[in-house]
Structures are given as structure tokens and as C-alpha cells.
Design a protein around this nucleic acid. Structure first.
Lengths: 149, 149
DNA sequence: GCCGGAGGTCGATGGAGTCCATGAGTCAGA
DNA sequence: TCTGACTCATGGACTCCATCGACCTCCGGC
């Protein structure tokens, strides 16, 4: 993991569909060398995959919300987690320090769907209560943190 | 935007480095047809880009936190936003309904760096106070919501 | 000094990306 | 009904890329 690897990661975070030839030109190596480096980064788990960044509104998922889950005392955290994992609306899930055990980032089409989702989460065994905050707009998301290489 | 477009988006959210030939095989079209469709999705802004999904811990950014910002009454929201935008640690930024005007997802290397970041945010003109919650672990992030096509 | 491994370049080749001409299907209007 | 315009697919052609194998270079250990 040297500075060239870090630059490759930066470049792939900017545009994951860059060709190896293009990456090679930018880091000053040959395409096979870049190919091997990227393969090693993938094998090591440093690069987990490549995702298209989509406009959720255009896909009919215009409502973004953060939901905090407060568990019952004595709840089985794994059960709660499994239940939440089964809900496709939950895009991200963090296990938190503090009163709220989990913080979810959810994506739905309408406020009505959000309401239904909240009800479903609240009905989940082990969930004592939830706290929801709605995002009125997304200023930016998943912005790559550059300049590490 | 038909069901083939939605499938292409799903496939690119699974693996943004899929070749056009591979996508073509999966959706049952020719490679040029897929190329044109994807180009149109990009031009329309439905697909905003392609990002490598990295292991932040491996990059020395093992600490994830959510920071809520409560603004001063009379604060210029744009100024606060600009200040936050200039902080590379802030990976995502949502403008929220509720007491906390902004919710940030931040990524730093150590708790000490998080402390410094919080201090910096609190010193920003227009920021009345912040509320920080630390993620002990990330269960999943940016999980694509499938099955729309 | 010599060996072995890591990690690079170069060259070849099969396959992919992409431009372009063409054809099928759909719809509006004469 | 026929026609023209439009959309969106295909197939061919050409260029460029991915990827493999062969070889080179540097460096640390014996």
C-alpha cells in the first residue's frame, strides 16, 4: 500500500469505470502493472466493489430519512439487526454508541411509505422506540475524501 | 426509462465495472444498445457516476460519526454549509427538518481527530451547537435497493 | 557473488468499446 | 391506407483495451 495505490483508489473513487489504460497513464505505470495492483487491492478487501451513484429521486426514492432505534432492555440485538436487514428500504445501518443502538439511513418514495416503514420497525420485537428525522435535501453524499496519496 | 433501464441501473449498482458486453448479455440486448442506454442515463443525470466502495479502515479512516448541527437563530445557512463543505472529513451532508439543521456523516482516523473536527465545526460562525454520535460498527452502507426493475 | 522473489515493462492476441449504416416498429396526418 | 418522421434496435468495421506470458531490474539474504 504505497502512494500509487492510494492514487489508484482516489481515481477509482472519482470514476470507477476508468479503464486500466487510463489509470496507468495517470499514475505513470503500464496497464498490466495497474491491473495487478487493483487486483491486489480487491483481493485484500481494501476495494470492496464498484457502485453506480444514482439519482434516487429519478428512481422514485425521493424521501431520505435517518431513523434511530432504541432497543428494549433485554432485546436481542442480533434479532433486531436481522429484521432491519430484511427491509430493503434501509440503505445503511450503523451500530451506535449512545441511547440509540442503531442509526439507519432509509430511502423511500413517499412520506406515506416512510410512515409504514416506521410502524414496521416499531413493531419489530426488541425495538422500544424510534426517532426519525427527515432530510429535506441532500447537499452531498459519499463524497470521496481525497488527498490521502 | 423502462424495465431494461432499471435492470441496467441495478446491475451497475451491483458492479459498476461490468463491461457493456456483460450487461448486454444479462439484459438481452446488443452491446451498442446497452452503451447507448447507459449513455442516456448518464446524460439525464439518473446515473451520476461510478464510485469504488472502499474499506475506510484500511485507509486509516476507521472512525465514523454522525454530527447534527444546530444553527444560531439568524445564522446564514449558506455560510454554514460552505464551511462544512470545505471540510473533507464530511462525507455526506443532509439538510434536515427539525432542530438540527444539518446532519453530517464524517469519517476520521482517530477519536482525537473527531474531537478536533467537532471543535472546528462548533467554532464555525452560525453554528450554535452540535450533537455527535459515534458509530461503533458499520453493519452495511450504501446497500443498493434492488428489484425496481 | 549468486539466488529468489517482488514488481515492473514489452509484445501479442482475443475480446470489448464505439461509430455508423441500416432496418423494424410506431404514430400522426394527408 | 400510405407516407414520412422518429425511436431504438442490430450488425459490421475499426480501434483500443484487457490480459497473458516472457523477460528485465532491483534488492535482501545466504
Amino acid at each position: 500500500m504505497d502512494s500509487i495505490d492510494l492514487r489508484l483508489i482516489d481515481l477509482l473513487r472519482e470514476n470507477a469505470r476508468s479503464s486500466y489504460a487510463e489509470l496507468a497513464r495517470k499514475v505513470g505505470l503500464s496497464a498490466p502493472a495497474v491491473h495487478e495492483r487493483v487486483g491486489k487491492l480487491e483481493a485484500a478487501g481494501t476495494v470492496r466493489g464498484y457502485r453506480a451513484d444514482v439519482d434516487h429521486e429519478a428512481l422514485g426514492l425521493g424521501v431520505t430519512a435517518l431513523i434511530g432505534i432504541i432497543e428494549d432492555s433485554g432485546a436481542d440485538t442480533d434479532d433486531v439487526l436481522a429484521a432491519v436487514r430484511a427491509m430493503p428500504e434501509v440503505e445503511s445501518c450503523y451500530f451506535m454508541a449512545g441511547v440509540e443502538s442503531y442509526q439507519l439511513i432509509v430511502r423511500v418514495g413517499t412520506i406515506a411509505e416512510l410512515e409504514q416503514l416506521i410502524v414496521r420497525i416499531n413493531r419489530t420485537p426488541g425495538v422500544a422506540s424510534t426517532r426519525t428525522a427527515i432530510a429535506l435535501s441532500t447537499k452531498w453524499e459519499n463524497r470521496p475524501q481525497p488527498g490521502l496519496g
